[in-house]
Design a protein around this nucleic acid. Structure first.
Lengths: 158, 158
DNA sequence: GTCGCTGCAAAGTCTTTGCAGAGAG
DNA sequence: CTCTCTGCAAAGACTTTGCAGCGAC
């Protein structure tokens, strides 16, 4: 289960790399690098949660009270990031989509339908089969996501 | 890939079984069996597509022009069916949720991000690993879904 | 008969869009 | 300077809800 391959130094480097990718992406499309876009990327990176546009917006307002950022900008930036495959979105249950940074190690999700918590896991065998299946069907795989729904250990006790 | 374990006779029996499960479910919760609810279940069963509430509503109106059925009823019935795990929903991309009957054989999805088509597949190894992972983490698994995103064979040619 | 169900339309959510001023390149 | 971005508010898309009459049990 543990997939700890990064320490704090690596994380910083990892973020710099990510930020750089973002800048390259922007430049390539003649888009501008703005403080809002940076803050959104950074906040996504720092959070280990799966964030809704609204919760991301709230987080940013807490962390950067001086920066007025509109929810519309959050939506626009998330779309941009998703289109360029830098973030992936996940949606389940009644509510809207949750986003997470795609650059982190790939992983799948266990979602508790009682409390809504999300646990991540990685399984090499599954990853491998996915690639194989896509290949067999002549499908060019760009991304994948897997969710297991159920009741988490904690909720089972109550 | 082929997973043809049913023929037309079985399908009919399968549907009767499904309908019966639905009736039992309704009775258990002191809910009523109405023509609208039956038509929704039947249309879901007959369709091999993954339907949005709107497309399901359209389909029903085509198949049963005399029956006036409101979109609200479709939403209400889908929620009911989803809560009782008789249908599962899938959401991806920009648009809303798509529903499919959960009673059919379990399968996963290849989703083309170009044309939106959904191809289904079944893989025993993946199914098996999923159960194992849930067990290991003390998670009571109720359902799962897997999606592979990419570009389908057809769209790659153009 | 009772009480849940339905269609309708109105009310909510969540997201996107138009616009005029601000700011990156 | 030019042309994209941004925040705001208004518009849209998708869902849910209140209600009065209808229909299953």
């Amino acid at each position: 289960m543990s997939d700890i391959t990064t320490n704090f130094n690596d994380r910083t480097i990892e973020y710099e790399q990510l930020l750089n990718d973002f800048k390259v992406l922007l430049k390539k499309n003649a888009l501008k690098f703005t403080i809002q876009r940076e803050v959104i990327l950074e906040t996504l990176y720092d959070s280990d949660e799966h964030l809704t546009p609204e919760s991301l917006h709230n987080l940013i307002q807490e962390k950067f009270p001086d920066l007025k950022i509109g929810i519309a900008t959050v939506y626009r930036t998330l779309s941009l990031l998703e289109d360029s495959s830098m973030v992936t979105s996940l949606s389940f249950g009644a509510q809207g989509k949750k986003y997470e940074l795609g650059a982190k190690d790939h992983h799948d999700h266990l979602i508790c339908t009682e409390c809504g918590s999300i646990t991540e896991f990685v399984d090499e065998q599954i990853e491998h089969r996915q690639h194989k299946i896509a290949d067999e069907l002549g499908f060019f795989m760009k991304d994948h996501s897997m969710q297991i729904y159920g009741i988490c250990k904690l909720c089972q006790q109550t």
